[in-house]
Design a protein around this nucleic acid. Structure first.
Lengths: 294, 294
DNA sequence: CGTTTTATTCCATTTTCTGGAACTGATGCT
DNA sequence: AGCATCAGTTCCAGAAAATGGAATAAAACG
């Protein structure tokens, strides 16, 4: 009955621990194939991504060699994009470039991106203030999703990607999300996840987890004390929601070498203030409680 | 045997003549339906355009009301975009926002848009220099396509959209394109177009057009002296191509009230210089004469 | 003018999309 | 707590679109 779609699961490969080794960029360009997607429409978007990375014109033949896709397929895709005004053929009818419509789309996307921009600004400010990496999280399905993240500048740090997901039972935000659910909801959710062990601190026993959740609920903040990754301490609060329960979390993460529980607690006021700012941003950007206009 | 796809034809509605009435923006928002496209993939892009215009979060239900699309259809589309990382659900699992991947796509599109940017800069400079609207054109199929355009600041002016198309036989650039073709090619092209009359200056007779084309070919520049729109004079030159024949034109347009043939001729040196700059830009952005790498 | 390279069309097969109807889960009201 | 309501999700059979090998057309080359 698992209807889980393909997602970035918490593959620990992604969660590179950069200890005394900052900025190790893999940067190996395969130069081979790049287009993928489970559906034709997504393949088209994938093609657009390849195109978006070009700062020069390109030809059908060139793309064929670059992506490995059959020529008629690519031809159809390009033709489709061209008649839609997303691409334009230049001069000799052989070289393509981006079209007005595509550029306008990109411009609008970035221009109207006020929410992410504002949130990100709050996050940056917070990181600057307390000196450790912070992220905004949300409950997505049965897992905690990293919506945005700003890394600290300190040389020793954990490097995590926005977009990756971690289990609820061993993350600070996850425990907060659980704590504010109705018991019935929580039970349903927990029934679908296995309390997998990641470290010796991971709470794999349901009753222990319930206890912890109770504690978290009354305290209003949660720790993840090396429960997911060894050496990683995290403290989180909820971003208060306008109506109903919140599903946004704000967390600070740091290596235990530098971040103790006490120090983490001292960040709470700053954390709460930032959460409040994010709540204000979101309230403004949410199209109102009731549904529609005329 | 006409395999012409749907395009922005030269509907004269688009070609608004703004005389003593600058900046009349229609700006009527239908608020009704917006999604269209001949294929599922294009409909998805169209949906992205709707989304891109939002600066707030949106819900499935909201989009249903806004676009009129059936709920399961929209649900599927959003789900598809979400699993691809193009969208992210926020907090309550009900509001969507743009995802990292979509934002990166938009950024890349705009960042690597050096060619259009550079061309546009040349165009702006030219307009500033000579004080009349200028555009870059290309031959697309059997018609002349406006690739880019910069309007003059003068109050009296013709307002034309980049992306629109005009017939070859009554545009300055069109005649230039025809002039540099091999006779056989030209004959083939002209066989597929009707020399429609737009004004009393329009060349609707094939032999007269051939004469004009000869003249244009040896002069290296072409006029459109009220042959398409009454009151519109235009002079064009070709953007020289690295190899083979050029398919890019550069043109100045102005109302006859202000722009005479003599004055237009005086712009030729500036026009030629700008064309040269554009040629240099394009040469650099064209992935080389021969095809592939290893 | 023949040769080569690249673009385009064809089309039978496979895959995907479509959207009405039914279902599920959440929220709100009494 | 129990029912009403509303938004989100799943189902599925018919309709539509994508796929890509092979054939064809059109340029570019020499």
């Amino acid at each position: 009955m698992l209807s889980i779609k393909f997602r970035n699961y918490y593959n620990l490969d992604q969660i590179t621990t950069c200890i005394e080794n900052i900025a190790m960029k893999p940067d190996m360009k395969p130069e081979i194939a790049k287009i993928d997607g489970d559906t034709p429409a997504l393949r088209l978007l994938s093609l657009l991504e390849v195109i978006a990375e070009k700062d020069r014109f390109f030809t059908l033949q060139g793309l064929v060699e670059e992506t490995g896709l059959p020529k008629p397929t690519l031809h159809r895709m390009l033709q489709q994009l061209e008649t839609a005004g997303m691409l334009q053929r230049d001069g000799d009818n052989r070289h393509y470039g981006t079209g007005v419509r595509l550029r306008r789309l990109a411009e609008n996307l970035l221009l109207n991106n006020t929410v992410q921009g504002a949130r990100h600004a709050v996050l940056s400010q917070l990181v600057k203030e307390i000196g450790e990496s912070c992220n905004i999280t949300a409950l997505s399905g049965n897992e905690v999703l990293y919506l945005d993240r700003v890394e600290t500048q300190a040389p020793l740090r954990f490097y995590l990607h926005p977009g990756s997901q971690v289990p609820v039972h061993c993350s600070a935000s996850g425990k907060l999300f659980l704590a504010q659910m109705k018991p019935a909801q929580r039970r349903r959710l927990l029934a679908h996840v296995s309390l997998e062990r990641f470290t010796h601190n991971t709470l794999t026993d349901l009753s222990l987890l319930e206890e912890e959740i109770e504690r978290v609920g009354s305290a209003g903040h949660a720790f993840d004390d090396e429960e997911f990754l060894p050496g990683l301490l995290c403290i989180a609060v909820l971003v208060p929601a306008a109506r109903g329960r919140s599903n946004l979390g704000l967390a600070v993460q740091g290596p235990t070498m530098r971040l103790s529980r006490e120090k983490a607690l001292s960040f709470l006021p700053a954390l709460r203030e930032a959460a409040q700012s994010i709540a204000a941003i979101d309230a403004e950007a949410t199209p109102d409680g009731n549904a529609s206009a005329s």
